[in-house]
Nucleic acid binder design. Structure first.
Length: 678
DNA sequence: ATAGGGTTAG
């Protein structure tokens, strides 16, 4: 059929459904020749059609030719810009329209506010809102949900709530916008409360609100609620597309329900990179690094290319297990295949530092052009765990002239100063944080300060700080005080701290062990026995200490006293030889680090089988002379192993890096980077 | 007069 034979009534629907610029211009031509243009809103329709087809130039040509532009022409142009992701043009056109005296309507405001949301321009958005009120559209739910979303995306949930409560009518979108906004501001609990209110008011839920609710379940770590959301979606037969299923995977994974996450994941018919990343990140964040990395490989085998987010998750896994080889190969991959952005670069900095290569981390950091807050915080924290408190402080000084430090910056700084024993600096910068930056210290900051002071023996001052805290002191601060008291044999204050720790019912076995050891050292035998009894009764097992070492790209893990290894005989043989050499050099086993009640001779044996020593010996046996070793340990390194590693580094002439749960110990030529202060 | 404009996973 030829276009020219069509009547004007037939042309219009054709125009509406048309997505091809060339065809639109043909219809356009017919409309011109048949004189259809004098009538009404044809221009608006043409602009809209060109916009939908992505041809902004033609849309603009039509718009420019209109002599008297009414709202619908302006709206069509604004929508065309909006559809083609040109928020700046939307805002400019809006301004021009108002300037020319055309009165905007509901659509105008909706589109203009959305543009402000994309631009994160709260100020302009609020100017537009004034106009909304002036034109009497403040009760329009489309405009209303737009302003709610603007506030939400700009992190102003308090302002959003004010508008929301004033609304006379609310539809599902309004509720959803609020619920999602509240979740994303980190308040999962409040989001769930709002959802309950929504149900009470008889609103029907759809898939989108479920997405928000699932985020909330992940946020507040409520698996039970998550399960009921999942069940609800099944009962209501809400369409389960990839997004929905991926959200379920994410929710279960964040709650540590990796079995459930995997089961849902396996049911997704057409997985995309987001689905994979959700699962990979779940495994990585729950400490299953090897599984995370296996999944990354499986993802590639399935034909998908990892993107930034999936790589960041995998890198986190490498950091966890200290797998430099895998981290490096991901780096090589990223350089070739992915655009390096700030987030990914920061993940690499973290990975190199956590795999022992602080200098590589630094080099990468120097390469980043403009550094954001997270990047600064990361490098400061990296120097901290490596025991370079001075360097962390120098970086902090550079940072504060360029960008505003936040609570995490100070947490990293204080912890760095604490690990290096920079007591005076610690006191000073804590004060600066409170008084100059007006950052209210959190429990974490207090724990750093108490740790810093107590570790240095200033337990009186540390205790006074805890007593003056504005919030109720939690486990972290009391444990910090207790371990300082234990180290410096300050039994009086220590006993106070130990009793507070017990009152708070610690679930961590390591904490209870500390309490028991402290009471034993203070010769409060009955209490020491009582704590051990509690542990036994609760069936608390000591977290098995293990150490891992990477040899030829494979990770080898050793449990304490592990006799199952095929090279066990050789490992023990080597350790015996080393021990004899050490003794000749003046080493005396520090049996006070054995907390079991054993004969002296047996204690020496226990020390000998500490997992880090097995890992070191294995590394020595299976790598070329001179190769640097990186050992990762899941608990703290004991004082005796620390001493032994210093000796070994001299005897075998190797650099040995031991990363324990808190920080790095870099042994070289009989010296440790921590200066024996940890 | 009608359609359209607002919420959507790692």
């Amino acid at each position: 059929m030829r276009l020219k034979n069509l009547s004007p009534q037939d042309l219009k629907p054709l125009l509406l459904g048309c997505r091809h610029s060339a065809l639109i211009s043909q219809i356009h031509a017919v409309m011109v020749s048949s004189g259809l243009f004098s009538s009404g809103n044809s221009n608006a329709q043409l602009i809209s059609s060109y916009g939908r087809a992505g041809d902004l130039e033609s849309a603009h040509k039509v718009f420019d030719k209109i002599s008297l532009r009414r709202v619908d022409s302006w709206n069509a142009m604004l929508i065309a810009y909006s559809r083609n992701e040109c928020p700046v043009e939307v805002v400019n056109a809006y301004k021009q329209m108002v300037f020319e005296g055309v009165k905007p309507d509901s659509s105008t405001f909706t589109v203009a506010l959305k543009a402000c949301t994309i631009l994160q321009d709260l100020e302009k958005g609020e100017v537009i809102w004034e106009k909304v009120v002036e034109c009497g559209y403040e009760n329009d739910i489309f405009v209303g949900s737009s302003i709610l979303n603007l506030y939400a995306k700009c992190g102003k949930m308090d302002k959003a709530a004010i508008v929301f409560e004033k609304m006379q009518k609310r539809d599902t979108v309004c509720w959803t916008t609020m619920i999602t906004g509240i979740v994303q501001s980190g308040k999962g609990r409040e989001a769930v409360d709002l959802y309950r209110r929504m149900q009470k008011e008889g609103m029907v839920s759809d898939g989108v609100v479920m997405l928000g609710l699932m985020q909330a379940c992940a946020n507040i770590a409520d698996t039970k609620l998550g399960l009921s959301v999942h069940g609800y979606m099944i009962r209501r037969a809400l369409p389960m597309d990839v997004n929905m299923l991926t959200s379920l995977v994410d929710m279960y994974a964040k709650n540590g329900e990796l079995d459930l996450a995997t089961r849902v994941f396996r049911k997704i018919p057409c997985r995309n990179t987001v689905s994979w990343s959700a699962l990979i990140s779940g495994f990585a964040q729950n400490g299953f690094a090897v599984n995370a990395l296996q999944l990354l490989i499986e993802m590639q085998l399935s034909g998908l290319t990892p993107d930034v987010a999936s790589l960041v998750s995998a890198l986190l896994a490498c950091s966890h297990i200290g797998s430099l080889k895998l981290g490096r190969s991901i780096h090589g991959y990223a350089v070739r295949k992915v655009i390096m952005d700030q987030v990914l670069s920061t993940a690499f900095i973290d990975m190199y530092a956590k795999c022992g290569l602080i200098s590589c981390a630094r080099a990468l950091y120097e390469h980043i052009g403009s550094k954001d807050l997270i990047c600064w915080n990361t490098i400061i924290a990296c120097y901290g765990i490596h025991g370079h408190g001075r360097e962390a402080l120098t970086l902090f000084q550079q940072m504060k002239d360029k960008i505003e430090p936040d609570h995490a910056t100070f947490a990293a700084l204080l912890s760095a100063l604490s690990h290096s024993g920079l007591v005076e600096e610690g006191r000073h910068w804590f004060d600066v944080m409170v008084n100059e930056y007006n950052i209210k210290p959190s429990e974490k900051h207090y724990a750093c300060l108490v740790d810093l002071l107590a570790r240095a023996g200033e337990v009186e001052e540390a205790k006074d700080i805890i007593i003056c805290m504005e919030m109720k002191p939690g486990l972290a601060v009391w444990v910090a005080l207790l371990s300082g008291c234990h180290k410096h044999k300050k039994f009086l204050i220590g006993e106070l701290a130990a009793n507070r720790v017990l009152e708070l019912i610690p679930e961590n076995t390591g904490t209870l062990v500390l309490v028991a050891n402290f009471f034993a050292a203070a010769k409060v035998w009955d209490k020491a026995a009582a704590v051990r009894k509690v542990m036994k009764k609760a069936g608390m097992k000591k977290v098995p200490g293990y150490s891992a070492v990477e040899v030829n790209g494979r990770l080898h893990a050793f449990l304490m006293g592990d006799t199952s290894h095929p090279q066990y005989e050789q490992i023990i043989g080597l350790l015996c030889n080393l021990e004899n050499e050490m003794k000749a050099m003046g080493y005396v086993p520090k049996t006070e680090f054995v907390w079991q009640n054993l004969e002296e001779e047996a204690k020496v044996k226990v020390l000998c089988y500490h997992s880090e020593r097995l890992a070191i010996a294995f590394g020595l046996l299976n790598t070329a002379p001179g190769t640097r070793l990186l050992i990762t340990k899941n608990l703290r390194v004991c004082g005796d192993c620390h001493e032994v590693t210093k000796f070994i580094s001299v005897i075998v002439k190797r650099e040995i890096i031991v990363r324990d749960v808190k920080r790095f110990h870099h042994f070289k030529d009989g010296i440790c980077s921590c200066g024996d202060y940890w």
